[in-house]
Simulated assay, not measured.
Amino acid sequence: MVGNNSNPMLELVRAMPEHLLAGYDIGCGQQPGRADDALVITGMGGSAISGALLAGVAADSSPVPILCSRDYDLPAAVGRRSLVIAISYSGNTEETLSGFNVARKRGCRLAVITSGGRLAAEAARARIPVVIVPTGLPPRAALGFLFGSLLALARSARVLRLTRKTVIAASTLLATRYETWRRKAGRLARALGDNLPVVYATSRLSEPVAERWRCQINENAKLLCHSSILPEHNHNEIVGMGAPYAMRSSHLFTLVDDSTHSRTRLRLKHLLGITRGTYRKATILAAEGESRLEQALSLVLLGDLLSIELAASREVDPLPVTRIEELKRRMARN
């Protein structure tokens, strides 16, 4: 698909660097208060991934645990000394609205990131800090705005040591490497062919990135994708590789970064040797950039581009998510 610029989703992926910095600047306009014992991000799908990425980026420095809650309720330990940030791009995600209301009842400190909807209205009535991001995007394509805003709130809450210069550096890396990564995504899509994509993370930083790959390939390419993480994989999934037979037609994409432990790298080498014959191909992909933020986002953008390339090769429109919308309609009737 290289050379075709008429794909709306591709253009939204191209805009991620701009959206990231814009989201950060928007988020700097709100002061959510401190997270004394935990930062909890409640959200679902394309909105929730921002929280998972934050947890990965801040894993080596955050003074408090960062939890991602993707359910109607919140963990019992979340209370008055916790900061809960509710993220719903539409503002109408029922699980997120439920988690938001649970946090209010418990007296948690609260902040909201959304483009509008019921969540924005309820937060405004309760005088809860609200970051309003631009509307009109598929939630999964609003990652730059949502994650950028969350970075700003996490910095304000003293959970993340970050400056605007750090965000600019990440945005610049994504913009300058975009065309190179787009061509690389095209090669990866051709190498995958009709095989099953399986994405392995190798660190806390790359774990949410592998999840993002899985979600984007499922939604954009309408193609089933599996993800897992090393070294945990080596204690269970390694045994089942190759069964059923369809798994033998899998292409393993393994994401590595500077924080990948040397023993995990050794495990990966042995894993690929022990299980040879249970997969069709294996590709190791290294993160680019200097900071943890840059490294995470470099692999995020590559995965997003791969999902668009796969959609093109499968001749499917990456925008519609018909089954998700149908499920929402059925849930609304009950």
Rank of each mutant, 00 (worst) to 15 (best):
Asn4Trp: 15
Met9Glu: 09
Leu12Ala: 13
His19Arg: 15
His19Ala: 14
Gly23Asn: 07
Gly27Ile: 07
Val40Phe: 06
Thr42Cys: 15
Thr42Asn: 02
Gly43Met: 09
Ser47Arg: 10
Ser50Val: 10
Val64His: 12
Ile66Val: 15
Leu67Cys: 11
Arg70Tyr: 05
Asp71Lys: 05
Pro75Asn: 08
Ala76Asp: 12
Ser82Val: 06
Ala86Ile: 04
Ser88Leu: 12
Tyr89Trp: 15
Ser98Met: 07
Arg104Val: 05
Leu110Tyr: 05
Val112Pro: 01
Ile113Asp: 00
Leu119Asp: 01
Glu122Ile: 06
Gly136Ile: 12
Pro139Ile: 10
Arg140Ala: 09
Phe145Trp: 15
Phe147Met: 07
Leu150Met: 07
Ala152Ser: 12
Leu153Cys: 08
Ala154Ser: 14
Ser156Thr: 03
Leu160Gly: 04
Val167Pro: 01
Ala169Val: 00
Ala170Glu: 03
Leu174Met: 14
Tyr178Cys: 10
Thr180Leu: 09
Asn195Gln: 07
Leu196Lys: 02
Val199Arg: 10
Tyr200Phe: 15
Glu207Lys: 07
Pro208Ala: 14
Ala210Asp: 01
Glu211Gly: 14
Ile217His: 10
Cys225Leu: 02
Ser228His: 12
Ser228Arg: 03
Ile229Glu: 06
Pro231Met: 13
Glu237His: 04
Gly240Trp: 02
His251Phe: 00
Gly273Ser: 06
Arg276Glu: 13
Arg276Met: 08
Thr283His: 09
Glu288Gln: 15
Gly289Phe: 03
Arg292Pro: 01
Arg292Trp: 00
Arg292Tyr: 01
Ser298Gln: 04
Ser298Asp: 07
Ser298Gly: 12
Ser298Met: 06
Leu299Val: 11
Leu310Ser: 04
Ala312Asp: 01
Leu319Ile: 07
Glu326Cys: 01
Lys328Phe: 03
